[in-house]
Design a protein around this nucleic acid. Sequence first.
DNA 1: CTGTTAGCGCGTTCAA
DNA 2: TTGAACGCGCTAACAG
Lengths: 346, 346
Amino acid sequence: MIEAAAGARRVPVMADVARLAGVSHQTVSRVVNGQDNLRPATRAKVEEAIRQLGYRPNTAARALVTRRSATIGVIGSKSGYWGPSTVHRTIQAAGREAGYFVSSVNLQSLTREELVDAVEHLRNQGVEGIVLISATDEALEVARAQEQWGVPVVVVEGDPARTHWTVGVDQVAGAEAGTRHLVELGHSDIVHLAGPQEWTEGRARLQGWRNAMYAAGLRPSEHVTGDWSAASGFELGRRIAEREDVTAVFAANDQMALGLLRALSEAGRGVPGGERGVSVVGFDDIPEAAYLIPPLTTVRQDFEAVGRRAIEILRAALAGTPEPARLVEPELVVRASTAPPVERNP
Amino acid sequence: MIEAAAGARRVPVMADVARLAGVSHQTVSRVVNGQDNLRPATRAKVEEAIRQLGYRPNTAARALVTRRSATIGVIGSKSGYWGPSTVHRTIQAAGREAGYFVSSVNLQSLTREELVDAVEHLRNQGVEGIVLISATDEALEVARAQEQWGVPVVVVEGDPARTHWTVGVDQVAGAEAGTRHLVELGHSDIVHLAGPQEWTEGRARLQGWRNAMYAAGLRPSEHVTGDWSAASGFELGRRIAEREDVTAVFAANDQMALGLLRALSEAGRGVPGGERGVSVVGFDDIPEAAYLIPPLTTVRQDFEAVGRRAIEILRAALAGTPEPARLVEPELVVRASTAPPVERNP
DNA sequence: CTGTTAGCGCGTTCAA
DNA sequence: TTGAACGCGCTAACAG
């Protein structure tokens, strides 16, 4: 370390600022932390010294003494679906605005092992709280043990019955609205192209579809289950396309709807019109939804609201004044992929 | 703090482990850091004590004394396009695998001010290095001043001439391949639906298109410039659809191609066939590309390779053994949206 | 192979 | 309103 001693440029520390300003390091600390019992002249001197030296407080030292890392962790998943990744980005922005550093870890798969690993990783970093984005059953189970984690955990789209703090969109209401729209157009044979049932969203949307069917006095036919991907929407769509009685499909997300649109198109079944036509409703309102062929009627989720709300809840929990879960309302966006069914000639 | 002293459960520290194991805290440190000059029996004792207490090292204290935060920062953008966000997720995974904590900040817009802010934020956190994902001119300019930042910065899709460390896909080669494919099918009037020209990707793809046109002895017609979104692809596509002479379009990304497909469809111009048909090539190969109507021929980028490579380069830079930039090769994926032009009856 | 000592840079006492 | 002393939990350097 001879070089350092000899004057190689070191990162300036509080003591350097104190020396330059002619005060104690303690006074510098007060300026940095915005305390008000300081003579304006003193403050000015210190601020000038800070500027001149380009001083910045050492986060590690501060964290060590305050026992607060000013960091929160976010657990997302590696798959880049529009919804979760938008929530993730919003959380990062909101977390930073709230004065936190945001550390992320993306899971390859939502297995118990990977999840526990991620939590370990974040706890090692000393995060003050965690937001968990992908709510599968396994994730919820792990999150349930949060008392042991020592830090509050907010689960996005979690099951209120199984997690302490949660935030999300009213998935059931959204699915009901999407299905009801089809019912009101006159459809009665409405198939549900469902999402994976180990996801809370997948289950809730299935439930909403059923609710709306029963409410209309219709018997929900069986549903088919995909994996959120366009590929699965296409594969399952081919089978749906063979069923001439079907006049409408409510898909659990826009990607699957997209694959479905192509399957229908290939099968020569128009969307929405024509004698063998099929109406399609999606879920999410991805940015491309309005530009599909045809433009997709879908249920919009305000992912940014969810992300912001997640941070609000986490902050409240950290402050010791927990807030109740509150659902964000989804909104039906009607475009060109839905229309009344055309009379069929038997 | 009487409660604490009275025995309220504290987070265990190294000294607690040492006491329980009957060794010095230094020995515990050695175990924790995996040094090998330890008697197996001692190590076992310590490990048992660690397990029993649920001890975990305090990152802040370690960072303070080692002057290493074990954290790297990633700067991305709030817009959630497939490419950048895939790279972002991969970087997070690769960074963590390399033993780092990964702190992210997503920019609302890529203005100079926001960028400087993000860098400040990350430096305050004491990150050891930074990966900057969105390479616009402003971003590159800010990155250029990295000598002042005190930490190495890797720019994804940066301009090798203007940034120290960079990694990316050979955009020019990709655009050449996409355009050449159209040329080889027999098209000569190939329009380029370009990306924003302040993005290095946007410029490089334009350049590749031009190169391929000249190489084929064709005169590149003027290009139109979008903003990467499906909306802009649709708007510009409507104008392109009016030009009956155009038989092919090379779009700078898949989202714009998606919007374009709809514009062409609305204008009654088939893709790819028919007398007024238009062939379309995209760029990126988003997961939905294979399920558009028709399935999109496009240039695939290996975003995960880019993300992994970014971490490799950053690690090398941190280790003081910088590696040269190396481009990832893109790959043409031929699907159904391209075909030879049909003879026109004038 | 293991223990002792001395900080890392900062905030929290207290006293002045 | 300001300063001095102390310690946060850990690793580095040395001694044994």
